[in-house]
């Protein structure tokens, strides 16, 4: 782990229980880390959420996505576009980035790289035009 990743982990672990996926989406998910979901879901709650809002896998904890959804609406001081991004389709995790600094990957744009087959043809054409 490089120095930047060490500092990042030191800051984000105690606050968000950061798992160092290297492609942080906290700002889009109500400042709630989706990698703490036992299924590591990045696109919303699974269908197994318990009646009381607790996790299917770990009943002792509240569903990460129930929390995220609530916070994306209610957290103060959050820019509106962070709130608006909540329902974006987030791409599959790039497992090569695990353990690297998402701050560095954000600056270099590495965290926004997706597999060539991920973007539908229509959208890819629109982006090129």
């Amino acid at each position: 782990m490089g120095l930047v990743s060490l500092v990042e982990h030191a800051v984000k672990k105690p606050i968000w229980d950061c798992r160092m996926c290297g492609q942080c989406v906290l700002h889009d998910t109500g400042m709630t880390c989706p990698m703490t979901c036992p299924k590591t879901l990045r696109n919303g709650p699974c269908g197994g959420v318990r009646e009381d809002g607790r996790c299917e896998v770990k009943p002792e904890m509240r569903c990460v996505w129930v929390k995220a959804e609530e916070r994306s609406r209610t957290l103060p001081l959050m820019p509106q576009d962070w709130r608006d991004h909540f329902n974006n389709l987030r791409p599959p995790v790039d497992n090569r980035l695990k353990g690297t600094s998402s701050w560095r990957n954000l600056l270099s744009g590495r965290d926004r790289e997706t597999p060539p087959g991920w973007t539908p043809e229509a959208e890819a054409e629109k982006a090129e035009a």
Partner: peptide, 12 residues
Amino acid sequence: RVFDLDGPQLIR
């Protein structure tokens, strides 16, 4: 458990 993708990603 695997969950390499999630449901919405699998649709895509």
